[in-house]
Simulated assay, not measured.
Amino acid sequence: MAQKKAYEVEGWLARPDRDIVLVLIYGPDRGLVSERARRFAEKTGLPIDDPFSVVRIDAADLDQQGRLLEEARTVPMFADRRLVWVRGAGAQAALAADVAALVAEPPGDCVVLIEAGDLKKGAALRSAVERATTAMALPCYADDGRGVDALIDETLAAAGLSIALEARQLLKALLGGDRLASRGELEKLALYCAGRGEVTVEDVRASVGDVSRLSAEDAVDAVLSGRIALFDTLFTRHVASGGPPFLILSAALRQVQNLQLLREAVDGQGKTPAAAVASARPPVFFARRRAVEDALQRWNQAMLFAAAERLQGAILKTRVNPSVAEALTRQALLALAIEAARAGGGSRRKIGGG
């Protein structure tokens, strides 16, 4: 099939197949989609600022079937070939029909590049590309840990800067929601630290805004600390930004399992919640320690066991009924947040209780 996995996209863009005449770059991370589309456009060797060589079209203007076909099959006047660059694609039926026709009879002197949002599996545009042998579909999702590290290294090295380990950990916690936003924050940080040699934690705190406040970990911390309103806000934003509800459910289950281990250190070894968190392996990221300590004070082993069962049940239900996954996830997590809020006072009075 004419598609790449998310982790294969960078490698393909470094050496794109010259026989591919249509490239679809899509995904929820619009900044990353835009950045990779520009990289592919540059790889064509065409002057991308030359209007005779590169034709830019908004997908909203391709409302009639045949318009993209007409543009792609126009004979170039001042070059051997042209690039037709479509932006803002989505569920336009006319565009999908034209793409199907183009890949069936590829033009010999034109390359088509399409930027699209988050296309679900089975979407007409995505399916038309994935079934073709002369097209390629490239998904773009929010940067994972390795992607964020690479972006940090690339941007700071270009400015002659290194970064301390703790500063890198904090920076990674603040980046990753959107590629363009992250790059902008890194460029701002590099300018702030110009001439200093190494970026410190203080530099990161002073310069970088929290451009990824919608993280699953933040929402889970809000649930387990009983901050109901904050959870509702973070969950709503997570879903609105295209994040899958399952991500927060699975993160919540992992955190509950971690709390069970920490609770054993409190109950069995007589450690305080702070000491248990400080000695955790792998270590708890320093920016989250206070939230984890608070959750550990609220939840005893019996409550954690019941929470794990509730989360496992919710995960199963969302897999069986994906159409209502958002509602099921919100209901399960909200119930846990309410339980944590009610347990707050009693857990603090009896920290070591089981």
Rank of each mutant, 00 (worst) to 15 (best):
A159F: 06
A190F: 10
V204I: 07
S127M: 09
V99H: 10
K5N: 14
S215Y: 01
R56S: 13
A325F: 07
V112K: 03
A167P: 02
L234R: 00
I20K: 15
M77P: 02
P106I: 04
A59W: 04
Q65G: 00
L316P: 05
A124M: 14
I48P: 00
G45F: 10
A335I: 01
I114C: 02
G66F: 07
V211S: 04
L119S: 03
P106Y: 07
W85E: 02
L333G: 01
D218W: 06
K317E: 15
I248G: 03
A332G: 09
Q269V: 04
V320G: 08
A59I: 05
V33I: 11
D153K: 11
I228V: 14
L336C: 06
D29E: 05
G147Q: 09
L249P: 08
D58T: 09
R254L: 11
S207Y: 06
A164L: 11
Q92W: 07
N300R: 15
D294C: 06
F78R: 09
S53K: 12
A308Q: 03
R348V: 13
A104H: 12
S127D: 13
P245A: 09
Q92K: 12
E42G: 10
G66E: 11
E166R: 14
T133P: 03
V220F: 00
V277Y: 03
D218V: 00
N300V: 12
L24I: 08
R205W: 05
I315Q: 14
L253A: 13
R205D: 02
L161D: 00
G31I: 01
V23W: 07
A302K: 12
I228A: 05
R36D: 09
R254G: 13
D149L: 09
L336Q: 11
L328W: 03
G176Q: 08
V239I: 13
V223I: 09
R56T: 11
A173M: 06
L125K: 02
M136A: 10
K4V: 05
Y26H: 15
A94P: 04
I351L: 15
A327K: 04
E185I: 01
G226V: 06
D267H: 13
Q65N: 08
G184A: 14
A265K: 11
L336P: 07
E105Y: 08
D294H: 08
E202G: 07
E8A: 14
E217A: 12
I114W: 02
R342V: 14
R310Y: 00
D153W: 02
G313S: 11
S34I: 00
R39I: 12
V21N: 00
L191G: 13
E105P: 05
S250M: 04
V324S: 15
F78T: 13
R168C: 07
C193K: 06
A124R: 14
E185F: 03
E339Y: 01
A194D: 11
D218A: 14
T200Q: 03
